[in-house]
Amino acid sequence: VLKALERTRQLDIPDEKTMPVLMKLLEEAGGNWSYIKLDNYTALVDAIYSVED
């Protein structure tokens, strides 16, 4: 979780936006981090930006 938060902080995305999206992605992935961690957490960042749209 810390590495995911560090990555999104680099992009000026607050933890308050990151955590709900991260928890949803983890739930959808059955707790499997490998998809979320791919390409420096690209799936997480993309999911956060899609929620903002």
Rank of each mutant, 00 (worst) to 15 (best):
L25G: 01
L22D: 00
L22V: 03
I13Y: 04
P20T: 10
L25Q: 01
L25F: 04
W33N: 00
E52R: 10
M23C: 10
I48C: 01
L44M: 02
K37Q: 15
E6P: 00
L38E: 13
L5D: 02
E16K: 08
L5G: 03
Q10A: 13
M23Y: 09
D39E: 09
V51R: 11
E16N: 10
M23N: 07
L44K: 01
V45C: 03
V45T: 06
D12Q: 14
M19I: 15
K17W: 09
K37V: 15
L2G: 11
N32V: 08
K17M: 11
A47K: 08
T8A: 07
W33G: 00
I48D: 01
L25D: 00
Y41I: 04
T42M: 13
I36E: 01
D12I: 05
G31E: 06
A29L: 12
Q10E: 13
T8Y: 05
D53H: 14
P14G: 05
A29I: 07
V21H: 05
T42N: 13
E16H: 13
Y35R: 10
S50E: 12
E16C: 14
T42P: 01
D53G: 14
K24G: 06
S34P: 04
E28Y: 09
L22K: 00
N40W: 07
G31N: 10
E28T: 09
G31Q: 08
L44G: 00
E27F: 10
N40Q: 07
T18S: 12
M19S: 03
P20L: 12
K24Y: 07
Y35N: 12
N32E: 10
E52Q: 13
P14A: 08
M23V: 08
K37T: 14
V21K: 04
N32Y: 06
P14F: 05
W33A: 01
S50T: 11
L38P: 06
N32I: 08
S50P: 05
Q10R: 08
E28R: 10
K3F: 04
T18W: 04
L44I: 04
L44Y: 02
L22N: 00
Y35A: 13
K37G: 11
D39Q: 09
D46F: 10
V45W: 04
A43S: 08
D39L: 07
I13G: 03
L22Q: 00
E27R: 10
K3H: 12
G30R: 10
D15L: 05
L5A: 02
Y41W: 12
L22F: 01
E52K: 13
L2R: 13
